[in-house]
Write a protein that binds this DNA or RNA. Structure first.
Lengths: 262, 262
DNA sequence: GACGTGAACT
DNA sequence: AGTTCACGTC
């Protein structure tokens, strides 16, 4: 028996909006710890990891570990039927092949329940080791989204270079080149507007903008984004989910001297 | 060496928005006087003339006359990467085949530079003689845009007729006809809402609405528009650019008794 | 919330 | 190249 009651239902709506374009089908894993997901995108290039800790739910009952395979497009379609102020409760019986989403309007005047078929998805759950990163950049998520969107109008890949002073985003394409430099800035009135750089060593890595622009769909989940970079490691683009956990996107850097990217 | 610093960068963004649909490629001409452009639209029917005087720039350095051929679509794409409050600096080395747009955010925390390839464009620079016009109408630019948009839903051409009392915009199409009369009105609280007519002789001319509706893309540049009319002369639709210059569109009247227009 | 525009896909 | 979808703007 599984029953998870999330008062701020809009969180789950936003989570699905942020991953449904990247991942078609995925297993949601429930345990006493929380509600989580780990999945490769449909082209098997990037990886998404979501965690919503049990403490973040108003009510969290998970008798035994459960892995529920869902089509994220269909799940998103159902969640779109929930109001932004609705309380969402997710229910599943043990050994059931369906999951039920219940939506309660803030006023309790409208109560909906949507039942969705589960599916069998074979997924290797990768252990992601904690790593030391050469540089970690924290910046306003909207700014990061804007930069990735702008650069994508010029080129296909972005080079992210971090120095103590700032972070540089560069691209090149047929019509020209672009460099955007963001200065480290911790002295801003509002902490969510700060750009903070923790750097152990200089790092400069190249990524496909197509994926970065998918990741930034998670912007509504958090005012800030954290980008963790190391040579030879996938970049981690993390959006913290207040009081509950995070959504993290992993993407391997491009090898610089490849003849032709994809 | 060329270096033009424009504090109100949104002006340049708006200028490009207003001409990029009309003209594909054009030469920007820089001289000590200012930054200008003159180009036929891609169908070689209408003409655009832009002037941004050097005095309007915070910093204006132009060592020698320079003509820079740009693809306006690509230039617009790059300018879209500038914030509306950004300071835009345009740089080019002599004999360089590129131009650089630098964008500085108001806070100086974000500095971008975009380099664009220049192109060779052969353009005959027409001398446009100052002319006496039979009638000059000044009116709110938004009103003019609305009229052209509305009339285009009925017909393909507009007849603009000016009398001392007012200006009439007429069209006819399959579904019917339309006439919009604007009375001269100088007694309005705000001068930008006035409709002012200077008339030497009655004039009534026909124009393709398709082009008029392209011209009105410049509406964000000025609250008022000036329409100068004479038989046998192209109409001039002018939007003044505060403190800096103007953008003018020229379009030849249709000959009335042609069998079929274009 | 609706429209118009630009980008992606077929 | 045409259609569809998503985004930004009004």
């Amino acid at each position: 028996m599984l029953e998870l009651r999330l008062v701020q239902g809009s969180l789950l709506k936003k989570v699905l909006e942020s991953i449904k374009d990247l991942v078609n089908d995925a297993n949601f894993d429930c345990s006493a710890t929380g509600f989580s997901l780990q999945a490769m995108d449909s082209s098997h290039v990037s990886l998404v990891a979501l965690l919503l800790r049990s403490e973040g739910f108003e009510h969290y009952r998970c008798d035994r570990k459960l892995s529920m395979g869902m089509n994220l497009g269909n799940m998103s379609r159902m969640l779109k039927c929930a109001g932004n102020d609705d309380i969402i409760t997710l229910k599943a019986d043990d050994d059931s092949d369906t999951v039920t989403f219940m939506f309660e309007s803030a006023t309790q005047d409208k109560i909906s329940d949507f039942e969705m078929k589960l599916m069998d998805i074979d997924s290797e759950h990768l252990g992601i080791p904690d790593a030391e990163y050469q540089a970690i950049v924290r910046m306003p998520s909207a700014e990061f989204a804007r930069i990735c969107k702008d650069l994508a109008t010029i080129g296909d890949t972005v080079v992210i270079s971090v120095t103590k002073e700032g972070v540089k985003f560069s691209t090149a394409g047929d019509i020209g080149t672009a460099n955007i430099v963001l200065r480290q800035n911790t002295t801003v009135d509002k902490p969510e507007e700060a750009t903070i750089i923790e750097m152990n060593s200089l790092v400069s890595l190249t990524f496909a903008l197509r994926f970065m622009n998918s990741f930034t769909k998670a912007t509504p989940l958090s005012n800030t984004v954290t980008i963790s970079l190391s040579s030879e490691l996938p970049v981690v683009v993390e959006y913290k989910i207040a009081e509950m956990g995070y959504i993290r996107f992993y993407l391997a850097p491009k090898v610089e001297d490849e003849m032709e990217g994809d």
